[in-house]
């Protein structure tokens, strides 16, 4: 951060939405895994996601924003295509994050 002479006075922040650079994805203990082939693009995950982490392009869910997704699991829990036990048919599955991370 800049020194006191160069910071905007009064702590005003002039760059809207700058928190995007803060990667809350690092908090994640569970990872929503998206299986595109099972998605019906109902956008239920998108409307409920608290962290704007469902990436939609041209009316289709395309990915999860793992840089910011905190892994709450609301998306998978609410997804109408992710009920029951058959993982292969689900659009969203919560899996432990450690399976995907090599460090730690």
């Amino acid at each position: 951060m800049k020194g006191w002479k160069n910071l905007e006075i009064g702590a005003v922040i002039t760059e809207p939405g700058s928190s995007t650079v803060y990667k809350t994805g690092e908090w994640r203990a569970w990872r929503p895994v998206f299986q595109r082939e099972n998605c019906i693009d109902c956008m239920i995950c998108w409307v409920f996601c608290p962290d704007s982490s469902i990436i939609v392009e041209d009316n289709k869910v395309v990915a999860i924003d793992y840089e910011h997704c905190k892994g709450c699991g609301i998306c998978a829990f609410e997804c109408p295509k992710s009920k029951g036990d058959n993982e292969s048919k689900k659009a969203l599955i919560m899996k432990p994050e450690y399976l995907f991370r090599e460090e730690d």
């Binding site: 809207p16 939405g17 700058s18 928190s19 995007t20 650079v21 803060y22 990667k23 809350t24 908090w27 994640r28 608290p50 962290d51 704007s52 982490s53 924003d65 840089e67 910011h68 905190k70 892994g71 709450c72 699991g73 609301i74």
Partner: peptide, 11 residues
Amino acid sequence: IAPGHRLCTGC
């Protein structure tokens, strides 16, 4: 509202 806010997981 941009992501990167620090509301608790699932808030």
